[in-house]
């Protein structure tokens, strides 16, 4: 039995499609079900930011965005880069400003990713004030609580619709298969088999 945690939302549907290719069907939760047992798997459905936490602490396998894994510094194995969830973590400012990263000293930066944001600006030698928000990033510059944001950009439509523009890509982001370090040993064959089968279809 493999305990497999999936993030609720868009990534879950895409993860289910890839797993379908190796004959594993994700039984989606009914109503408010959080765990579904089915065909050799315990499916656990969690918030996006909790997936690496679950896997680090004992759930065997999960699928998570690389942004969340890196932000949390999760101590997990990351055997596979999956072919979905591709986007980028970028610095975003008002579309009216013509600004470079080097000019952002003492800027207030709103983000869901404070650790990666601090690391990026610190490596660039630029001191900024980082404000942690949990959502609605685009609102922060509009209402004046931040001068810029660091957030995930996919098509760019949302930021353009809010009068913002992407000025610097910090890193590429994508979905990853992650594995608990102890489970990799105690369920060696089952997990290797899953990884090999997935590697064969992506």
């Amino acid at each position: 039995m493999i305990n497999f945690v999936l993030p609720k939302g868009r990534l879950m549907k895409k993860a289910a499609t890839v797993l379908e290719k190796i004959g594993v069907s994700v039984k989606e939760p009914e109503d408010r079900e959080l765990i579904v047992k089915d065909d050799g798997f315990n499916w656990i459905f969690s918030r996006v930011f909790d997936v690496p936490v679950f896997v680090e602490n004992g759930i065997d396998v999960g699928i998570s965005g690389s942004d969340v894994i890196d932000e949390l510094g999760a101590d997990v194995f990351v055997p596979l880069e999956l072919p979905f969830g591709q986007c980028r973590l970028s610095v975003i400012t008002s579309a009216q400003k013509d600004l470079k990263i080097e000019q952002m000293t003492n800027y207030r930066i709103a983000t869901k990713f404070p650790n990666m944001t601090k690391a990026f600006f610190s490596d660039a030698g630029i001191e900024v004030n980082v404000i942690k928000l949990h959502g609605s990033m685009e609102l922060a510059p509009k209402i004046g609580i931040a001068d810029a944001i660091v957030d995930i950009v996919d098509s760019g439509n949302t930021i353009r619709a809010n009068g913002l523009k992407e000025i610097y890509k910090i890193r590429d982001v994508g979905a990853r298969l992650i594995v608990n370090r102890v489970s990799q040993k105690t369920k060696f064959q089952e997990i290797n088999d899953l990884v090999e089968r997935l590697a064969g279809v992506i």
Binding site: E56, N57, G58, I59, N180, R181, V182, S183, K185, T186
Partner: peptide, 11 residues
């Protein structure tokens, strides 16, 4: 070396 048990998710 690494020391672990199936009864705990961490090393």
């Amino acid at each position: 070396i690494e020391i672990y048990t199936r009864n705990h998710g961490k090393m």
